[in-house]
Write a protein that binds this DNA or RNA. Structure first.
Length: 658
DNA sequence: ACCAAAGGTAAGGGTAATTCTCTTGT
DNA sequence: TACAAGAGAATTACCCTTACCTTTGG
């Protein structure tokens, strides 16, 4: 995050009434009345009245330990002469009597100071602990012990901790510490970065190793690799480190891959004989009888050994997802069960999905094949929501209740909170949207271009006045196409979309993919004399815009919208399509991993200058979060760094889901 | 030599996502 | 009969915990 070079901490004065909203990344957006921005725009533009705040909850998991909360607000100037700025808000929980301001960005030696103060340093995160007893002892003492999959918040915190550690020591690459330094040199590394995480050190250690091991996340094994792996296995046995090194894979990766290949393994459909043998073996090893529900305490390695023709994974999967249920007289799963599942989960009234006890939930439910299976069923339901990953659990759950309980005809249509468009075509994607506002600024620069996009056509109906739905797009750039006023919208995922800019008297950005593509994007903005600035992003059924304008529906003239729609159509026909799906996907997953690994991502708020944008409009998007690097085939010089917008929906669609 | 802590490995249970295959509808 | 779409089964890359081993430093 961009909290590094903060010159000073300032106090936020409230300006009349301010409103906070929170986006899906946990960033807080501050909205305040536009009454103090009169002389801000030197080039005749209006400063957006939204400031992005990052709420960094340092000890959020343990609120009972603190007695008060203090928020400090930090402003981050972006560039000289540019009035827009980013605001970083750090929430610091204070203990009794502690009034010392602890600004996250002003770290001198925060790691140690945090430790001295006893802040963030739970007993759990500061010891290696490897036994169950250790865990039980600490849990009994009231310590929090987190385990299971790491949440996004935890990963963010970990990354922040690492970044801070690096900054304090002037180290660029965490891999230096992890893989090159001696134990002595990195002495306090793991302790420091474990601060605030209620996980034992070894868990943090594992996680970090995996994250920065570039032999991890290599992807699917090729046939060649498999063959080589078999050879190496013969030669080196279970020396995974050696095998991995020879193969350019991590030790755990080759170990895991070997688990899947057994010389005697069958693939495909199970024969009746195999099923019979599996059941026999499971019951024998667990001391149970046919008809008993057995979902736990099975040694699958032993089972596989005895079954002979299947791997442990295959055995486990077959048993938990089918055979046990079949044998114990289970019934078929129905649509009503879908509804029931969502309902029952809602009744649990938990804040976090991890708190769901699937064993209990699946108890006495004849159509549930196993707790594990039920969980995967939940996943299937959940994934009907395109942006489920971005939604807070309660919101997702509420939305799912609506979706699941809706009449069949309503399903498979776009489900959008704050939706638009009476005539938007139904999409196969069910997308739940929570209203999120993002600060998007269009700075109107004098233009020599004539206005474009004037004609008539279909009508887009906007929801009147009320807050529209906001989504964040993947990081993107404007790339000049050679045609004056036309740019490519270049996303971080090798997606080029033609973009037309015109700036007089309004700014209109229009982008569209091929007519048939569901990825059609309309980027539309209208600005009139220092007044309202609106960026409107229309992905099927999705609108992105700032909420500067209170009278949105009034200011957006019908004709302008119509014109835009027409433009999109026209451009669509001459649209180019780039690389194939697979290639894109590969690139994408690479990006995702890069994003996870790269700490010092380019700052979003670089100055926008020259590079073909001298005329037209400048789109600026202050954003603190991860910046996905562009593709090599785009010259960086000609690319305008506009900032990072990540659109969960777009991402989901790009990922090819649903 | 001993001990404790830190660092590291192997095994194995598990998750999340993709790919394959079968079924159903047109 | 051919095809498409959807659902469910199978597969797999990766994740996490546990138990145990090794190294290091006092």
């Amino acid at each position: 995050m961009n909290t590094g070079d903060v010159p000073a901490t300032v106090t936020l004065e409230s300006v009349n009434s301010v409103t906070f909203t929170q986006d899906t990344d946990g960033n807080i957006i501050l909205h305040c009345p536009q009454n103090d921005g009169e002389d801000l725009g030197s080039d005749g533009t209006t400063e957006p009245v939204h400031k992005r705040l990052r709420l960094s909850d340092e000890d959020g998991e343990d609120p009972q330990d603190s007695t008060s909360t203090e928020y400090s607000v930090v402003t981050l100037p972006i560039t000289e002469g540019d009035e827009s700025f980013e605001v970083t808000m750090t929430a610091t929980e204070m203990r009794d009597g502690e009034l010392e301001s602890d600004d996250l960005s002003e770290t001198t030696d925060r790691d140690s100071s945090a430790q001295k103060k006893g802040k963030d340093v739970s007993a759990v995160s500061q010891a290696w602990f490897t036994t169950k007893e250790d865990k039980d002892t600490l849990v009994n003492k009231g310590h929090k012990w987190k385990q299971g999959m790491w949440s996004k918040e935890e990963i963010d915190l970990l990354m922040n901790n690492i970044e801070r550690y690096l900054k304090n020591r002037g180290i660029r690459d965490p891999a230096e510490i992890i893989f090159e330094m001696s134990k002595e040199e990195r002495k306090d590394f793991y302790r420091s970065i474990a601060c605030g995480l209620n996980r034992p050190l070894f868990a943090v250690y594992r996680r970090v190793l995996r994250m920065y091991d570039n032999r991890n996340h290599v992807g699917k094994y090729t046939d060649e690799e498999i063959n080589k792996l078999k050879e190496l296995r013969q030669k080196h046995g279970n020396d995974w480190a050696t095998i991995g090194a020879a193969l350019g894979r991590s030790a755990s990766s080759v170990k895991d891959r070997c688990r899947l290949m057994k010389d005697t393994c069958n693939t495909g459909k199970w024969t009746e004989e195999e099923e019979r043998r599996l059941a026999e073996v499971v019951h024998e090893l667990t001391g149970t009888e046919v008809g008993d529900v057995v979902t736990q305490g099975v040694s699958w390695a032993s089972v596989a050994e005895l079954v002979g023709t299947r791997s442990e994974k295959q055995c486990r999967s077959k048993w938990l997802n089918y055979l046990n249920w079949k044998q114990s007289g289970g019934t078929e799963w129905t649509k009503e069960d879908d509804i029931n599942l969502v309902r029952r989960i809602a009744e649990l009234d938990v804040d976090d999905e991890n708190e769901i006890n699937w064993d209990i939930l699946s108890g006495g439910w004849s159509s549930v094949r196993s707790p594990q299976w039920l969980r995967s069923k939940w996943w299937t339901i959940k994934r009907q929501v395109a942006n489920h990953k971005e939604l807070p659990f309660p919101v997702l759950l509420k939305g799912l209740q609506d979706v699941v309980e809706a009449p069949p005809s309503a399903i498979n249509k776009v489900v959008v909170v704050g939706s638009r468009s009476a005539n938007a075509s139904p999409s196969p994607v069910t997308a739940l949207q929570i209203p999120v506002q993002i600060p998007v600024q269009i700075t109107h620069v004098s233009s020599s271009d004539g206005a474009s996009g004037t004609s008539d056509s279909e009508t887009i109906t906007l929801n009147s006045g009320a807050l529209q739905t906001f989504e964040l797009l993947p990081s993107f750039h404007l790339q000049p196409t050679g045609t004056p006023g036309t740019y490519f919208l270049q996303t971080g995922t090798n997606q080029s979309l033609p973009l037309t800019l015109s700036a007089n008297p309004t700014v209109t950005l229009t982008a569209a993919a091929s007519p048939s593509s569901p990825d059609q994007i309309i980027l539309h903005s209208l600005t009139t004399d220092n007044e309202n600035v609106t960026v409107q992003m229309s992905h099927p059924g999705i609108i992105i815009q700032t909420v500067t304008s209170e009278d949105l529906s009034d200011s957006l003239g019908q004709s302008e919208l119509e014109a835009e729609q027409e433009l999109v159509k026209e451009e669509s026909s001459e649209n180019q399509n780039n690389s194939g799906e697979d290639e894109q996907n590969e690139e994408r997953s690479k990006d995702i991993h890069e994003g996870e690994k790269t700490l010092d991502s380019p700052k979003a708020e670089e100055t926008v200058e020259s590079s073909g944008m001298g005329e037209g409009a400048v789109l600026m998007v202050p954003s603190p979060s991860s910046f996905i690097p562009t593709n090599e085939d785009i010259s960086t010089d000609s690319v305008l760094p506009l900032g990072t917008l990540t659109d969960p929906i777009l991402q989901n669609q790009e990922e090819g889901s649903d």
